[in-house]
Amino acid sequence: MSRIALFASGSGSNFQVIAEAIQRGDISADIAILVCDQPDAYVIKRAEQLQIPVFSFRAKDYSSKVEFETKIVDKLREAGVDFIFLAGYMRLIGETLLRAYGGKIVNIHPSLLPAFPGKDAIGQAFNARVKITGVTVHFVDEGMDTGPIIDQESVRVAEDETRESLQEKIQKIEHTLYPRVIKNLLTKAVVEGTKK
């Protein structure tokens, strides 16, 4: 069974959905650790309620990204982590984590990449008045939302759409797409592992 780390910075709605899918047996995995860069984020409460270990930190307490990512890698190795899934983690992954877990870090982004990378993708799409936006799950590389795309799902932007209603639609898609992609990736990893 794969041991996964979830990285989050905020309320943790994707974290919750993934944890519940694992509890139901839909995804065969253990959440070994939550990594959070905001020690007062609500996602930490969610993890504590589920008795999932947490490593939280403040970037400003470290002299560099290399220093805090080295600490994260140590924590992940101690926990026996195989894969990292970013679930609303608002930091660009640096080369220290990429070197340790290259090809095993996955992110979910609330747009149809390559359109609207970076922060506030929902707001970007809404302000651009596009007719269609959506959600992308992709592997993480050194760029901002530039890694190879694993799966995407689109959502139509209604004429009378508000930013809030669009956010709700996007979150609904995230909450079905991400667990499905995680399940498929981990199943494939197990199959490939047994072939070796």
Results as ranks from 00 to 15, higher is better:
I4T: 08
D37F: 02
G118R: 08
S111Q: 14
L34P: 12
F85I: 01
F116A: 05
I18R: 14
E192S: 15
A29W: 14
L97G: 04
K75P: 09
M90R: 11
I22A: 07
S9I: 04
D145M: 12
D40E: 13
Q16G: 11
L113W: 01
S63A: 08
V135W: 05
C36A: 15
K188H: 13
G143P: 07
G10L: 06
Q38C: 10
E20W: 04
Q152G: 04
T176P: 06
G88M: 09
E192A: 15
G88T: 02
S154A: 09
A47I: 03
S2H: 03
K104M: 00
V190M: 15
F57G: 05
V73F: 11
F83K: 02
A87R: 04
K65E: 15
E153L: 01
V140N: 02
I44R: 01
N107E: 06
H138R: 14
I170A: 00
V73S: 02
G10R: 08
S11F: 12
I31K: 15
F15T: 02
V137N: 09
A21F: 02
N107C: 09
P179I: 10
K104S: 09
P39N: 05
H109Y: 15
S165D: 14
I149K: 10
I44V: 13
F55N: 13
G118S: 03
F15W: 12
A19S: 13
I22L: 05
R99N: 11
S13D: 14
E161P: 05
T194S: 13
V135E: 06
Q38G: 12
H175D: 08
G94I: 01
T96G: 07
R129A: 11
I84H: 01
K183P: 15
Y101G: 07
N127Y: 02
C36F: 01
R99M: 07
L98G: 08
V140Q: 00
I105M: 10
V157L: 05
D160A: 05
G147I: 03
D40Q: 08
I4D: 00
I108W: 01
S165W: 03
A5H: 04
G94Y: 06
I18C: 12
L50N: 06
G88R: 05
A21H: 10
S11I: 14
K119C: 00
P148N: 03
M90P: 05
G134E: 04
E142T: 06
T136L: 10
S154D: 05
F55A: 05
H138G: 00
L92T: 12
G88Y: 09
I33V: 13
Q167D: 00
L112N: 02
A41Y: 08
G134V: 09
S64H: 03
I52M: 15
I122W: 00
T133E: 01
D160I: 01
V191W: 12
R99E: 11
I108T: 10
G88K: 00
P179D: 08
S28G: 14
L166I: 00
T70Q: 11
T70D: 06
V35L: 12
D160G: 06
N14T: 08
T194C: 13
F15P: 07
Q152D: 00
G25L: 07
K188M: 11
K172P: 05
A128F: 04
D74R: 10
E142D: 13
E153W: 07
K196V: 11
A19P: 12
V191L: 12
M90F: 08
I173T: 08
L112I: 08
A121W: 03
G147N: 11
Y62F: 08
P39D: 06
M1S: 15
I52C: 10
Y101W: 01
